[in-house]
Amino acid sequence: MFTTLATGIKPESLDQVAPFLYLIFAGITVFSAWMIVISQNIVRMAMYLLFTLGGVAGLYFLMNAEFLAAIQLIVYAGGTLILIVFGVMLTSKNPFMRLHTYLWERFVAVGLGALLAMLTTIALVNTPIKQSASDQMVNHDIHTIGSTLLGPFLVPFEVAAVLLLVVMIGAAFMARSRA
């Protein structure tokens, strides 16, 4: 794992299990995502969201984005999700609060989602995706990530820092109890 992160080269064996890993991760992701739609219990939904996020991290890992996979697990699954769970716990007196939705609403929503998916799929299938101008592939090692982040992505990086500061102020203000 560490070697992978450092060099961007994968062990040979991973290559062979890739299809199985893909099936497992994709299965977890999609299944849990749709379980969120179906589930009527907010805590269960949060649980399924955790599985989805984990599955997505696995998919990132399969796509040579190990750093991103780690970040996904640490920040998203470990941070954001915990935040959401806190939100759930703070805002419902009953920790197993049930959400009441009508059946027809669920059908309409699922229908709309399916329609959107179908449209996007049609668009995807009908689009010839071409190769980029240059053929040299970038190493996905941590060094490249660092220099990219502080190179072409310097401004977004710094702006994100400022954004987080503002968010901190805003969230702290909204959440603190002063008259």
């Binding site: 995502a33 939705t101 609403e105 669920r106 929503a109 989602g113 995807l124």
Partner: peptide, 19 residues
């Protein structure tokens, strides 16, 4: 795309802001 569809469905059905 499957995730997108699920997300849209969640947004449309859930009454809870956290949802």
């Amino acid at each position: 795309i499957a995730l997108l569809a699920a997300g849209v469905a969640v947004i449309l059905t859930k009454r809870n802001a956290v949802g």
